[in-house]
Simulated scan of single mutants.
Amino acid sequence: MGTVRGMSQSDGVRRVGEVEEFKALAHPLRARLLGALREHGPATATELAHRFATDTGSTSYHLRKLAQYGFIAEAGDPGHPRARRWQAVHRVNEWSATAMAATAEGREASAVMRRQQVDVLIRDVEGYEAMLGSLPPEWVEASGIGDLLVRLTPDSVNTLWARFYAHVDELVAQDAADPAARPVSILVSGLPRDAA
């Protein structure tokens, strides 16, 4: 989940253009359901309800909402023709921050989305700390978190986004077949501060 710039629909990117679509995506449980489908592959409402400790009816409702706006679709399961399995349709979502900031609803949905991304970071930090004693030294050395405060123009920040995501894609392709590769959570932000 997140704003991704400089990618096309053919890259597996869904452009969210309407506030109603964005509100559907920004719902906390829906965002987690979509994230799970992207990370773990197709699943039923029952499987996802078990994963997130929710009831199946509520989970099914939120999956249908995601499907209504085209974020997920049914995945055929020949072994279980009556089981409704869902899969993510796109690898990532992008949206115009300017368009979402133009209305109160868009601003509210954007705020919810930002806080969800911070929650993901907190869960990732807690998970990392829990397994730190069992991680191989090379993973301990490679892992980290940092922050910078720099002076940039909006054009330079957009250039940074484009280069960052292009480089991530190159590295993912490079490491695709390497058995040492494992899932790595990367959260980035570029938020202007008050000039005062």
Rank of each mutant, 00 (worst) to 15 (best):
M7Y: 04
E20P: 00
F22H: 02
K23S: 07
A24I: 06
L29K: 07
L29A: 10
A36W: 06
E39N: 11
E39F: 12
A43I: 05
T44C: 09
E47Q: 15
L48D: 02
L48I: 09
F52A: 01
F52W: 05
A53R: 14
T54E: 12
T59N: 01
K65F: 02
Y69C: 01
A73Y: 06
A73I: 09
A75S: 13
G76T: 11
G76A: 14
G76V: 12
G79S: 07
H80I: 05
R82Q: 15
Q87N: 09
A88R: 01
V89T: 15
A101M: 08
A101F: 03
A101G: 06
T103N: 11
A109T: 04
A111P: 04
Q116R: 14
V118G: 05
V118Y: 07
I122H: 14
V125E: 09
E126M: 09
A130R: 15
A130P: 06
M131K: 13
M131Y: 02
L132P: 03
L132M: 11
P136S: 12
V140T: 15
E141T: 11
G144Y: 06
G146T: 03
D147N: 13
L149D: 01
V150R: 09
L152G: 04
P154G: 08
D155F: 06
D155V: 10
N158F: 04
T159M: 03
A162C: 04
Y165I: 07
A166W: 02
D169H: 11
V172Y: 04
A173I: 02
Q174R: 15
D175C: 14
R182P: 03
V184F: 06
S185H: 13
S189L: 12
G190P: 02
P192S: 12
A196L: 15
